[in-house]
Write a protein that binds this DNA or RNA. Structure first.
Lengths: 217, 217
DNA sequence: CATCATACCTACTCGCACGTAAGGTTACGC
DNA sequence: GCGTAACCTTACGTGCGAGTAGGTATGATG
């Protein structure tokens, strides 16, 4: 069938490059439309390529979404573990983790939207996301457990897990807050989160803050 | 066209009753399938009624979802304001709010899933949900502001807002945790949340807890 | 008992978007 | 220079599900 095909003859690129472009486009489109409302046509167009290429390289819509999820998730994890030094006091570790986390979200708002806002809701992906969250909860849990061990104290495992969940949840919520406010500063957000998580609302209301800065630096 | 229509001739019910049945069904189906994967046919079938009735009473799929959102949201809000007494010390107020909140989620897991897991992701509804969350944030913010005023202290508005967001976010996260664990106890979850939010991770690790119960009652 | 409104049904239309068949075109090795 | 493989296209087939047309029962009111 195909007609003369050629308009101004676009550049041909190696597969690896195109794949990244497609993933970039997919993340953008999924992020602003949602999984279902996003059409493969729009993703292809946004990537400057035609639809069958997307199918040829990344497979079906679901597989494409999984690929996005995987890439963004890996990036986030890497950013965090790179930020958290080892062998530091627990509050310092937490602080660095939060800084890295909010830094990432501030710099990759689309990725964040795909990763959490979308994946959490859509049935087939909730599992994959849950796995990622487990890992984060585990990381935080381990950190807290070490802090406890250093003090020679003990808390039930479930309490630790719940605490880690609360921490992760609060962070996710503030990440949403941050993602919706382009002018907000990731570092300030991290500071506020740290104050809330470490010092607690009760002490915070009494004027206590996490060392050394006052509540609003 | 229509055939003999009648099998054993089901009960005819007044509109108000059917509407509630439909909403019940819609919440169930939306909750387990997600907005898009849910079909109007399945909702109708689950409600024990045929599709055109749904359109006649509740309108299009979007409108139906909005109706679910509205009903569940109102119920949640009512449960909370009923729980929070007025003119109590702030920690007591927070504690009661959390109890009511987790109690509601424990008893209406489907409603919770629709309200948050779904609405947050789907484009057209994010706005409506955001409004509801604003209200909650405002309620909490006001509460915190009163607590501050009682102490004669002051914090920037934005810090209060962020703190409220963190609190709401942590609660949502634990609500998810709770919704996924049928055997978990809402009251215990509320206790853990209260400890985390009020006392803070730092003090918690030192063995401090919120009065009067120890960490795991 | 006629009449009207309300509850309720079966059986369709129709568009959208996933996924694909079949065929062009450029680049690179030999 | 020539084959062949990788890149890229247009133009479909197809299924599913939102929404509707048009008709049937039932109960209330005169």
């Amino acid at each position: 069938m195909a007609r003369v095909t050629t308009s101004p003859t676009f550049k041909r690129l190696p597969r690896a490059v195109r794949e990244q472009q497609m993933l970039d486009a997919a993340v953008r489109v999924f992020s602003r439309r949602g999984f279902h409302a996003a059409s493969m046509d729009e993703i292809a167009e946004d990537a400057g390529i035609s639809k069958p290429m997307v199918y040829a390289y990344l497979g079906t819509k679901e597989e494409l979404f999984i690929a996005c999820l995987h890439r963004e998730g890996t990036r986030l994890m890497e950013a965090i573990v790179a930020g958290v030094g080892t062998d530091l006091p627990p509050d310092e570790q937490l602080w660095r983790g939060l800084r890295a986390f909010f830094g990432f979200v501030g710099a990759h708002r689309d990725g964040w939207a795909v990763l959490y806002r979308q994946a959490r809701a859509q049935q087939p992906f909730a599992g994959a996301l849950a796995t990622m969250r487990e890992r984060m909860v585990e990381v935080i849990g381990t950190m807290l457990a070490q802090a406890l061990a250093a003090e020679g104290r003990e808390i039930r495992d479930m309490d630790l897990e719940v605490m880690a969940y609360a921490l992760v949840g609060a962070s996710e919520s503030l990440a949403d807050w941050l993602a919706d406010r382009p002018d907000a500063d990731p570092d300030k957000t991290a500071t506020r989160m740290m104050n809330f998580a470490w010092v607690g609302a009760g002490q915070l209301l009494h004027g206590e803050t996490w060392p050394p800065a006052p509540l609003s630096p």
